[in-house]
Design a protein around this nucleic acid. Sequence first.
DNA 1: CCAAAAGTGTTGTTGATACACCCATGT
DNA 2: ACATGGGTGTATCAACAACACTTTTGG
Lengths: 245, 245
Amino acid sequence: MAFLHTRKTSRTDNETVSEIQKPTIDGITIDCVIFGFNKGNLEVLLAHHAEGESIGKWGLLGGYLQKEESSDDAAQRILYELTSLDNIYLEQLKAFTAPKRVPRRRIVTIGYYTLVNREDYNVKAGLTLMEATWHKINELPELIFDHQEILQFSLMQLRNRVKQAPIGFNLLPEKFTLLQLMHLYEEILGIELDKSNFRRKILHMKLLVALEEKQQDVSHRAAKLYKFDPEIYKKLTEKGFNFEF
Amino acid sequence: MAFLHTRKTSRTDNETVSEIQKPTIDGITIDCVIFGFNKGNLEVLLAHHAEGESIGKWGLLGGYLQKEESSDDAAQRILYELTSLDNIYLEQLKAFTAPKRVPRRRIVTIGYYTLVNREDYNVKAGLTLMEATWHKINELPELIFDHQEILQFSLMQLRNRVKQAPIGFNLLPEKFTLLQLMHLYEEILGIELDKSNFRRKILHMKLLVALEEKQQDVSHRAAKLYKFDPEIYKKLTEKGFNFEF
DNA sequence: CCAAAAGTGTTGTTGATACACCCATGT
DNA sequence: ACATGGGTGTATCAACAACACTTTTGG
């Protein structure tokens, strides 16, 4: 059964691929990139490290993977512990595994990203995140370890995913105007869009439900409010549709 | 600094998120989904387990992540050890982390997938893979652990990625005809395509270089051969282009 | 000559793009 | 009245789908 063509490492014949050697890993962590949208700016929630080796620096929100939970559950748990938000769109990015990504120890981290509505967040959290604050995506502080890389990767992922599924809606309040939605796409994708064409395309998809309500207290013509309809989305999603603007 | 809103687990105040507890993981493995294309069929390379707990069953090709290598390097190494193929397109899928995905031990695996040209493989390998054989994607045997899930996920990933980048070319020989390419897309995406429209679209992209050569020994009009040009691809890729057919 | 695949041409429809213009509202 | 954003209309152009047709080659 000598089907292994060895290069760096050699193995004896009686081993099965799955059972070759002892673990060489010190631990697995989860790191969450939490995106928010505020006044036209895409923002990320970062934690300030007040103690330990990375004192004074900022990092992503994370924690250890527990023995009896999947990484999805762990990410959900960590998000809940930090923001008390439950049942949120959460997606795994990938594993980050560079041997020296953390000094001295061999830690592999699994990245996650999520989009939260700042309004919900502010209301429901009910606690002051003294150590965690929002940072504009264009004005980031220095980050610990490879968190900069994780963040850049998740930004790329967000830009790609936002073109294929209506996940951007997670960043907006329940009721929103079409131009709010357009500005969100502009900010995420870093492009400018034509108002008229954006309206046509998004309405043509029939993904939004027009409400009777209008904006209040604005110093210009009040815009109609819309909401995202998950029911309609489910029907549409089977056929596949794209969000390129 | 009580910014943790505890739910299941509670933590004392003096801990930093990164330093809460000891590792609870028995090991990290890499599992590779290796796609090939043969006579119009999409196939996957599987290993037959001749010993150990999973005796008699089939599984993905995998191995342990070593102490001083990244998972990308590990996947590359494993692919090389098994097929002696070097410098191949290889992409991380994600981490698979269900607590009970492997009996008794807590093993997290990082999935990778790759597309190999069967011709190259047969020629260059230079060794008989007695224990590893190709299986048609529609006629898969029962797989160990969660390998079925990993495989399905990678198939989904392949279908998505193939629409956004010309990775499908990795499955074809260096020189190929337009209809070979079309059949490849049809097989991967599970759809039928119009010959004429496919030609127009793919040629319009100017991604292929027409060769002077033609097919040999075919019992019908010989088709012109093309090759994929990575130089042209690089230029195009900056603007972004899509492969939806 | 026939089968089989290579390769070309045509036409109607759809959707993206660019841009001009009118509407409502608070200051 | 004017600034600001909300909202509508339209002409042009490029891309795509469907399908009919011609060409080359081996047997």
